[in-house]
Nucleic acid binder design. Structure first.
Length: 466
RNA sequence: GGUGCGGUAGCCAAGUGGUUAGGCACUGGAUUGCAAAUCCAUGAACAUCGGUUCGAAUCCGAUCCGCACCUCCA
């Protein structure tokens, strides 16, 4: 079954066929490192993580580039406010970004280029655009891209230029532009930029926003690559402008597929810093939720759908994850010392194909998760009647590992009980043998205080993480 | 005004011209010294109004409601 993905360019699902047949090169728009990313931002990065993991599951190689926007209005303004050099200021948030990715079990991309390291590449593209007649310099010294010169402008966003309301949201500026919709390739230096400035053939200044992605993607992935992703809010203007710049400069198709994820919303409203309804990941972790629970939350809705964030969903996820963990633990116990995989029991025989069938359809995560939970359910029923053989358990365990390479949530972080905990467990067993129930219950409460619960089963007491 | 997404049981969320999606919660049961934890069972739904059809939540039309983008937001 082919992996079909929704291409914003064609507004339809298309089979993923890498340009070179085997190696998927993807570019994902990354964070502007002027602050801690909020979990709405991570929704996008989780989507991209799921995408790269599933591409690998399908047998392709992946090279992913995720940029770090470390120069723009916000980074400059904030660094000056804090009296720090730009690089030093952004480093804090770059470090925080990587720490957060790790908490969410997001696989690292192959490259994380920072915009400030690619200024010469950006200048080279702008020079080409000048040579080809797409760029012009205005009286204030800034360089703009003339969208009228690029006849395909608007093909991604499908904007009807006539129906657009210039200034619907953003103030009409007074810059000396040929067309109000032209965008900046290079911004002439202004005092507010402090010492953030580079020399260029058009004078001192700094790059426009869109040009960095064109420069870094083409440098690291080639002039034509496979997938470009981002949030739906990037479609216009950012991605539209990237296409205009890149294709005008090279004369070649830029990205073959465009994929965009929906918003994370809170009470029906887009999570954003301007609305003040956002949470950073660290805030949520400080409340006692785990990165795994947040990952489950951000993963559990289809990526093109808006996803409503709510703490009660996180609570529900915790319960659902425990169900998965209980199953995994039971399988591990059944493995015992067996190392050779036997055939899968019949209740798990179709799991992989059901999972893949759902994921092949533009990453239908709900269907994929249903395949997981159906298996857990059928497995629990079967195991209550018939013991699983060690070999079967190994087979299930292998299957789970394979699926978790895509999902990144099935494997609970291993937690060994401390010596204190195991000693308490033994003490309780003795108390119970003596039918000393008050002592037994007292020990149980202490274990609970340490984060463990005891299951009294016919095979003896078993520890589980609370 | 232009463009796009959506409205499915108490909540979240897939899917689809006829056959149990799934998760959480509720309720009942099993288990237990009692609990907890765990497992099992179970009801309930497709925004409104028309139309097509043997049959519509699914297709068509209209309407209502929500969200988003329309020049530096993931």
């Amino acid at each position: 079954m082919p992996f079909r993905i929704y291409n914003t360019m064609s507004r339809s699902k298309e089979e993923l066929l890498p340009i070179d047949g085997e190696h998927v090169r993807m570019y994902t728009c990354g964070p502007t490192v002027y602050n801690y990313a909020h979990i709405g931002n991570f929704r996008a990065y989780i989507f991209e993580d799921l995408l790269r993991r599933y591409i690998k599951f399908c047998g392709f190689k992946v090279t992913q580039v995720q940029n770090l926007t470390d120069v723009d209005d916000k980074t400059i303004r904030s660094s000056i406010e804090q009296g720090l050099p730009l690089k030093e200021y952004t480093k804090t948030y770059i470090d925080a970004f990587f720490a957060d990715l790790a908490k969410l079990n997001i696989e690292p991309a192959e490259y994380y280029p920072a915009a400030t390291d690619y200024i010469p590449e950006m200048i080279a593209i702008i020079e080409t655009l000048f040579e080809k007649g797409y760029a012009y310099q205005s009286e204030d010294g800034s360089v703009y891209y003339s969208i009228d010169k690029f006849t395909e402008y608007g093909k991604l966003a499908r904007l009807d230029r006539k129906g657009m309301r210039p200034g619907a949201r953003v103030e009409q500026d007074e810059y000396d532009k040929d067309n109000a919709a032209d965008f900046a390739l290079w911004k002439a230096y202004v005092l507010e930029d402090g010492d953030v400035v580079w020399d260029s053939p058009w004078g001192r200044g700094r790059p426009g926003w869109h040009i960095e992605c064109s420069a870094m993607s083409m440098k690291l992935l080639g002039e034509s690559f496979d997938i470009h992703t981002g949030g739906v809010d990037n479609i216009f203007p950012h991605h539209e402008d990237e296409i205009a710049q890149s294709e005008a400069a090279t004369g070649k198709p830029y990205s073959k597929y465009w994929m965009h994820c929906g918003y994370l919303v809170v009470d029906g409203k887009k999570m954003s810093k301007s609305l003040g309804n956002f949470h950073t990941l660290r805030e949520v972790l400080d409340m006692g939720y785990t990165g795994r629970e947040v990952r489950y939350e951000l993963l559990s809705g289809h990526y093109r759908q808006s996803l409503n964030f709510a703490f009660k969903s996180l609570d529900a996820n915790r319960t659902a994850l425990k169900r998965l963990d209980e199953f995994s633990t039971n399988i591990k116990e059944a493995v015992g010392s067996e190392t050779e995989a036997d055939d899968l029991p019949e209740w798990a025989a179709k799991t992989r194909s059901k999972f893949a069938e759902a994921m092949d359809d533009d990453m239908n995560i709900s269907g994929a998760m249903a395949a997981i939970f159906d298996t857990v359910h059928a497995g629990n029923k079967a195991m209550s009647k018939t013991l699983l053989s060690g070999g079967q358990a190994v087979a299930i365990s292998n299957l789970w590992k394979e699926l978790d390479a895509v999902l990144g949530i099935l494997e609970a972080p291993a937690e060994e009980a401390s010596v204190e905990v195991t000693e308490l467990l033994e003490a309780r067993a003795i108390a119970r043998a003596e039918k000393n129930w008050p002592e037994s219950d007292r020990i149980r409460d202490r274990l609970a205080g340490l984060g463990w619960t005891v299951k009294d089963t016919p095979e003896g007491p078993k520890l589980r993480r609370l």
